[in-house]
Design a protein around this nucleic acid. Structure first.
Length: 951
RNA sequence: GCGGGAGUGGUGUAACGGCAGCCACGCGGGCCUUAGGAGCCCGUGCCUUCGGGCGUGCGGGUUCGAGUCCCGCCUCCCGCACCA
């Protein structure tokens, strides 16, 4: 082809197009893989390369564990992976030993639901999905260590998940030491008498079964019969964290019922204070810390017992306002409170107001009817009713311990069984809810905190002096809230009916699921139905094949059904004959048929990445200390940078912190926290379009009209804004971007759209801007027509050299601060400057290629290689700037009059205030702006600014 | 209701308390083309009597100087929500 033919034809042969990009990208991906470019050396174990570790600072970068869904990726998914990759490549060029990899969280409900829909075995669909995702991500050119890509569904992985569960099961929380200890140490303490048995008897007096009860009652993993979230639609129970505020399942949106079932729990509540306190030392976004604090929900207060006069235990309440105890004029119990039944008398007491009985012939009938109605109410109905208070008198009275007042006891659903003790003392004078209830039922109201002047008459919850709060022994009157709290709490403790206490919103973690696709528990039951942990040598307990892995189909709206674990169908698996080595010989045991929840595998994956092939331990101690150990005094340790969406603010991040702390207490890891620094990326949103009937139409087929309106096949549609997804028909896939532009353009575009932590709309038509940038860079190095190198080996001019220094400086600080968008703007600016040069000097463009490399690594490798460098640039030093070149000789000084810019002066950088002041006042523009007014003051900030203030 | 975050051109965004709008999309004009949904170059906040004036959600304040700090509103987004 002649040159004129090329010009006559369409695109020059050597233009950086999607085709050229695809060729370059796949070639370099192969090179990286074959030469193990991004394999991170360990200090010890099978992946050890001590020579490569020596003398380099380590950096552990982590992306949130993805689960491979069947839907494939859209362009929003890789955002965080690209960001961590850019950062990792940058830090590698600055000499750090970077650990970065990606595995798959492949167990769990989403994977299983997808398998159920497609009628295939979850193992098959999971493997297919992982393959698809690996392909889509490989095409992105992520600098991951492929040897470390674990999957939770691999028996070599879940063997250690089971091992950790076993550690949790075989330990207890020593409240005094504030940490977990091996269960054997508890047994020793009990045997020696150093620790009393809870009911006060001697250990030696206890029967074997009673001893087991005591020990099992202390374990961090325990079986309990308790109200749990039963979701018949999913066929499984769920953790509190997996249930929405509307009382439905997070996944699938099925109704959830409270039901008493025997389930595995993890004692996360034992760690409530440490999970709260250790947030202090973490470099996390404040909103996430706050969400964790709120979820843990610590509140300080007092327990107070109210005698009932019946033949029952007193009613114990929790209050954060013990100072208002003199104003407690009635009590309220949650409908499910266990004391309610014992309190109910045979008939209404004399003088019971009719409004209190809800028409019940006797208290039992009234309370039963009320409970029936309250339990039937869904969360949604409760909310639609607003805060209207309902309730019924229990026919009983209690005695206020501070003043001996006889106060009525009600049952009402505004008191929740799940918080505090499930019972409250009602203080209408200082509590809005109690006020509403008192008004409704005509109950007396006593103010015990003086409201401010002019208070409108409702409950006063603020600060103020105590009033009406004295008995023969103590008076709170005149005290502030804090002082009154302390005084009354001391009095209660001295007299017996109460004491200081702390309550948490956090509940223990419901850990078993009646599903198939999860980790089996390493647990068997003996003939007494007691759980026993299988020995380490029996791990992994492999997930058995079953004829039908689907959960038993149950009516989603019927909460009275029972869960049926699919593993019960595994032929010959549920019963097993074993010698557990406890001297009892070969015996028959029943296996645990539940599986672990989705979160189990993601509670410790960041640890397994460190040592993925270790067959002796879940992680080698040296490797763990090297990558995650504390860095000096006061550091909690953990991953150096963890990037992911804010949707895991509570669930995963809380569970993983809990497991980390157990492992830390037991001496298995050196880091007290798993994630030292957390960064929440924003989401990529997208526009969606509806036609006149309100139906969503495919966004890809919508055309923009000249007047800013939109049409779809000729009919007008309206634009809205939301998540990218199937339901809004607005998915754009990475594959489309690879085909149309190439991976490097896609990467640059995603990083240039805006700050990483801000959500923003996807705009396919804007991607071309990033392509033009890379094309211009390519053209600065390669002749589009001939493919020859265009770079000249001549010295660079001074202006360009200074611009390069400033660019390198700015790009470095931007990358350090994860400000990728501004770094790219700088690079484009510099590249545009090179484009305007008559010829591009090597000295000017080589640093640019290196600086672009973290963003567009394939293009950069290709240019680097064409520039004559035989080695990959992955370990080239990131360009540093000569400080001498950063110093300007002259600057533009801005001259303001009354704060408005009126002139600009080119001045030497060394100019002093007096000289600059003189030059500014000499400016004719200043004179004209002053318009004859006298000068009052002149603010001078040499060399950049003068502000002349007229009188 | 409580708590948190954010409001800047047509769009995404950028600005140590010191030149508002870097960079990019889009748009307008031009070049090159048989052609342009390619590429390149120039222009592009609004108004203007071409002097300049006005501009960072609204209203105040601090300051020589405020997009940035303080107070009060408005709007949007997120989290929690009868938590005693």
């Amino acid at each position: 082809m002649t040159a004129s033919e090329i010009r006559d034809g369409a695109t020059p042969t050597h233009r950086y197009s999607a085709t050229v990009a695809a060729d370059i990208e796949q070639r370099w991906q192969d090179v990286w893989e074959e030469s193990g470019t991004f394999e991170a050396p360990n200090p010890a174990g099978p992946l050890a390369a001590p020579d490569e570790v020596a003398g380099r600072e380590k950096l552990y970068i982590l992306d949130m564990f993805p689960y491979p869904s069947g839907a494939g990726l859209h362009v929003g998914h890789p955002l965080g992976y690209i960001a961590t990759d850019v950062y990792g490549r940058f830090q590698r060029m600055r000499g750090r030993n970077v650990l970065h990899c990606l595995g798959y969280d492949a167990f769990g409900l989403p994977a299983e639901q997808y398998a159920v829909q497609t009628g295939q075995h979850p193992r098959k669909t999971t493997e297919d999905n992982v393959t698809t995702m690996r392909r889509q991500l490989r095409r992105l050119g992520l600098a991951h260590d492929p040897r470390r890509s674990v999957a939770t569904t691999d028996p070599d992985y879940y063997r250690w998940t089971q091992w950790i569960f076993r550690q949790i099961f075989e330990s207890w929380f020593d409240e005094q030491a504030g940490r977990a200890r091996p269960i054997a140490e508890l047994v020793a303490l009990l045997e020696s008498g150093a620790r009393p048995v809870p009911d006060g008897r001697a250990w030696s007096e206890l029967a074997e079964a009673e001893r087991r009860d005591v020990v099992d009652g202390h374990r961090l993993a325990y079986v309990s019969q308790a109200p749990v979230n039963w979701c018949p639609g999913l066929g499984t129970v769920l953790a509190n964290e997996e249930v929405t505020a509307e009382g439905r399942s997070d996944i699938g949106n099925f109704p959830v019922f409270r039901r008493n079932l025997r389930q595995w729990m993890l004692r996360i509540t034992a760690y409530a204070d440490r999970l709260l306190d250790d947030l202090e030392g973490l470099d996390w976004p404040e909103p996430v810390k706050l969400m964790q604090r709120n979820w843990i929900g610590r509140s300080d207060g007092a327990r107070v017992r109210f005698a009932t006069g019946h033949d029952t235990a007193p009613i114990e309440v929790f209050t954060t306002r013990p100072d208002t105890l003199f104003g407690a004029t009635f009590m309220v119990l949650a409908p499910e409170h266990p004391l309610v039944d014992a309190l109910l008398p045979a008939a209404w007491p004399d003088g019971t107001p009719p409004a209190w009985t809800r028409g019940g012939v006797d208290p039992r009938a009234a309370v039963d009817a009320y409970r029936e109605q309250a339990i039937r109410k869904t969360e949604l109905e409760r909310q639609s009713e607003g805060r209207d208070k309902s309730g019924v008198f229990a026919g009983a009275y209690a005695t206020n311990p501070v003043n001996g007042e006889r106060i009525p006891v009600f049952v009402a659903d505004y008191v929740l069984m799940g918080y505090g003790t499930g019972a409250i003392m009602a203080v209408p004078g200082q509590d809005e809810r109690d006020w509403e209830f008192a008004e409704r039922f005509g109950l007396s109201i006593v103010r015990t905190v003086a409201p401010p002047e002019g208070w409108d008459g409702e409950a006063y919850v603020g600060e103020g002096a105590a009033i009406n709060s004295a008995n023969d022994e103590i008076s709170l009157d005149g005290m502030g809230v804090a002082a009154a709290k302390a005084a009354i709490t001391d009095w209660l403790a001295a007299k017996g009916p109460g004491e200081h206490t702390v309550t948490y919103k956090l509940r223990d973690w419901l850990f078993s699921r009646q599903r198939y696709w999860g980790e089996p528990f390493p647990i068997v039951y003996d003939e007494h139905d007691r759980p026993i942990a299988l020995p380490e040598s029996a791990l992994p307990v492999e997930l058995p094949e079953v004829g039908d892995y689907r959960p038993t189909a149950l009516d989603p709206d019927d909460g009275d059904t029972d869960p049926i674990p699919p593993l019960a169908r595994a032929e010959g698996w549920s019963e097993v004959e074993l010698d557990l080595g406890d001297g009892r010989g070969l015996r028959r045991y029943r296996r645990e048929l539940n599986v672990m929840p989705q979160w189990a595998g993601s509670c410790w994956y960041e640890i397994r990445y460190l040592d993925p092939t270790n067959t002796q331990r879940f992680v080698d101690a040296d490797n763990e200390r090297y990558w995650m150990g504390p860095q000096g005094e006061g550091d909690v340790g953990g991953v150096d940078l963890y990037v992911g969406g804010v949707e895991h603010a509570v669930l995963h991040l809380l569970y993983a912190r809990f497991w980390q702390k157990v492992l830390y207490d037991l001496g298995h890891v050196s880091a007290a926290e798993p994630f030292r620094r957390l960064f929440n990326q924003g989401y990529i949103q997208a526009h969606a379009f509806r036609d006149m009937r309100g139906q969503i139409v495919p966004a890809a087929e919508v055309e923009e009209q000249g007047d800013g309106t939109y049409s779809w096949h000729g009919q007008p549609v309206v634009r809205e804004y939301g998540k990218m997804g199937k339901s809004l028909k607005n998915i754009v896939t990475p594959d489309e971007m690879y085909d149309a532009y190439g991976a490097d353009t896609f990467r640059v575009y995603e990083m240039s759209m805006g700050p990483l932590d801000v959500s923003r709309p996807w705009e396919t038509r804007a991607v071309v801007g990033s392509q033009r940038f890379l094309q211009r860079l390519w053209r600065n190095v390669v002749d589009e027509e001939t493919g020859a190198l265009r770079v000249v080996d001549k010295p660079c001019d001074d202006v360009t050299r200074r611009l390069l220094a400033r660019t390198a400086e700015a790009v470095t600080t931007d990358l350090d601060g994860l400000r990728f968008n501004t770094a790219i703007a700088r690079l484009i600016e510099y590249n545009n400057a090179l484009t305007r040069l008559p010829a591009v000097p090597r000295e000017a463009v080589e640093p640019l290629v290196l600086m672009v490399a973290p963003f567009a690594p394939h293009l950069a490798e290709e240019l680097w290689s064409r520039l004559g460098h035989p080695q990959s640039l992955a370990y080239e030093a990131f360009p540093a700037s000569d400080p001498a070149l950063l110093v300007e000789e002259t600057v533009t000084a801005v001259v303001q009059v009354a704060g408005k810019v009126r002139d600009r002066l080119e001045v030497p950088v060394s100019i002093d205030d007096a000289a600059l002041r003189q030059r500014a006042l000499a400016s004719p523009r200043v004179a004209s702006a002053l318009d004859g007014r006298p000068v009052r003051t002149v603010v001078v900030r040499a060399p950049r600014l003068v502000n002349v203030v007229p009188g």
